[in-house]
Nucleic acid binder design. Structure first.
Lengths: 342, 342
DNA sequence: ACTGTTTGTAGGAGCGTTAATACGAAAGTT
DNA sequence: AACTTTCGTATTAACGCTCCTACAAACAGT
């Protein structure tokens, strides 16, 4: 920790007051007269005194820190979430302990342990698996404030997230409304136990009295642009001929777009494309991308508010609440134009 | 911090041993016989004991945590740096305290104070201003381990960074070598006191016996794709007609690319474009982007190694070292083709 | 048998802070 | 004048842990 910093004791010795008086003065207690406070504050700043949060935490039984565990920062949306959460937490006086699980459940579990050992007052977690939440539920059952950053209906854990199913529903309904009947789905999540977007896709079809052909589903086995490129190549190699594609995130969609550019497929004339997240580059792609806007700052704010609320009421936690933010569809050029029905 | 966790005392009472013996046993001291260790470990795990790092930190005078302060996470490269740093630190047993300064010097200063108050063992900082480093130098002078993540030659502070000047030099030399003589420069940094890329740009011209017209310089006043779009529009509205553009990062370059697509300017036929950072989307842009590869994981690794080295030798810090990683130019389609000379 | 060493365990101080309590001195009340 | 109240400050005990030292008991060595 560098050269030992000044302690209350040093300020006390310098001013001739007791440690306790110094402590009270620096915390602006009404029991200390103004003149004394001035003297003590001056001495403290001369000694470059900084309160020791470690000692403070030990006696106060709270660290004013919360743990943030994300899968990774590859997804620009998680990046936004991370930054927004840090900003909100800082504003509320909390320090952010940050970790990525790299989509590894074991690492996630270990980081949770680490943060507990560090006595973080609460945690915000974007879990690797949306269904394997036992280790997180165990926290909550021991009255520990945790908020998930993904939808987790009946998990018994607080959650604040985008309504991904609704977002996917909006996206796919938009395509169906434009006359599309063969809509490819590029989504790596169902294979990882997170079928929200796929559910939205299917529901949109059902609502329109349609049934989607499973031949239209591709698992890109990743969420990068490269994975999207590969998935689109895979899809086009099949017998079925999609007139539109719904990609589970914008990175994938940009890969799809790139594939189309190279293969001479015109967007949206030959194939319409819709992404998810509304990352910055969606607007600045070859063909500006229609996408579902992930309101990262809203989700972040609600999640932070919730975890702070849980911390405040830690001795009798309220029942878990699952908050879903409604996403908006941002229609751009990549899905413009009607398709003849029939 | 949720329900109070079990303490050494609880394990001691459960097993009948003293607190001290339990502490030694759990830390696998050779002074405790194996049978005793087994008994104690079992009791500890039954009680769900987790060592209290706060108390540990107080007595050990080290927190095993380091502060990471970035300007923001808008730039995908900082995102990669953040993630790589966190991974490396975790591997070395450190927890990452994370904060963004939002390019605000005051916030940066406050976060540094916060992290010191929390007794972080060291800090990794991507500073807002590359020249206004007094507050950081003050840390170093008090023997506090800090490593900057930007080049800072004679600042008296350790630094690990990309050699941005060399990267810019490579990029611009490549364009000059292809016959370009009017190369636009879109770079917000010089206005913020960070002229490394501009220096590289100018040096490349000087080395080729050329002098660049200041009319070619545009300050995009931001580093987003939108800023790049605006900057390109500004540049094209001037009298001078560039045949190439060097953008200080890939987001800006993608904005430039988008402007060109809309304005009917062919890339690279009419204008060649080179970016900086090699973000994922550079490869998947309308026209794949020539760019300077920012080796984020290498920089991160060296920075983490350095700060840990400084922590290890904290009572007599070695003289500051300025490590620069040599970047590679990745040539893609956006700068292909020679331009007739003269 | 007598000292010397090793072995297993325990006791106490201290890390820097806060909260509860204690205690003189000054000031107000009756 | 005696009695209570207020005020300013000090003392002490935690918080949970680790280090240093203490100390019996077991085990040598001569």
């Amino acid at each position: 920790m560098g050269k030992p910093l000044a302690r209350l004791k040093d300020v006390a010795e310098k001013t001739g007051f007791s440690i306790n008086t110094v402590s009270l003065a620096l915390r602006d207690s009404p029991r200390i007269p103004p003149e004394t406070k001035v003297i003590i504050r001056e001495a403290a700043s001369e000694l470059n005194y900084l309160p020791n949060y470690v000692a403070k935490s030990l006696v106060n039984q709270e660290t004013k820190s919360i743990g943030l565990i994300l899968t990774d920062l590859e997804n620009p949306i998680l990046t936004h979430v991370a930054q927004a959460i840090e900003n909100h937490l800082a504003k509320a006086g909390y320090t952010t302990l940050f970790a990525t699980s790299n989509n590894n459940l074991e690492v996630e579990t270990r980081m949770i342990e680490t943060f507990r050992a560090r006595r973080a007052d609460g945690m915000l977690i974007f879990p690797t698996h949306h269904r394997r939440l036992d280790h997180i539920r165990a926290l909550r059952q021991r009255n520990y404030p945790v908020v998930l950053l993904v939808g987790a209906g009946d998990s018994g854990i607080d959650a604040v997230s985008m309504n991904e199913q609704l977002g996917a529903h909006k996206a796919v309904s938009h395509l169906i409304g434009n006359g599309h009947r063969a809509i490819g789905l590029i989504d790596p999540a169902p294979a990882l136990g997170n079928a929200e977007k796929k559910e939205g896709y299917l529901q949109a079809h059902a609502d329109a009295g349609l049934v989607a052909d499973p031949e239209l589903f591709v698992d890109p086995k990743g969420h990068s642009a490269e994975a999207g490129y590969w998935a689109m190549a895979t899809l086009m190699a099949r017998d079925i001929r999609p007139t539109a594609v719904f990609a589970a995130n914008d990175s994938l969609a940009l890969g799809v777009l790139r594939y189309c550019a190279q293969a001479g497929i015109r967007v949206p004339a030959d194939i319409a494309i819709v992404g998810f997240d509304n990352i910055e580059f969606a607007e600045f792609a070859v063909t500006p991308l229609t996408t579902v806007d992930y309101n990262a700052s809203r989700v972040s704010q609600l999640a932070v508010e919730r975890v702070i609320e849980l911390i405040r009421r830690r001795d009798e936690l309220p029942p878990p609440r699952n908050t879903q933010v409604t996403p908006d569809l941002v229609v751009r050029e990549s899905s413009a134009g009607l398709r003849g029905l029939g």
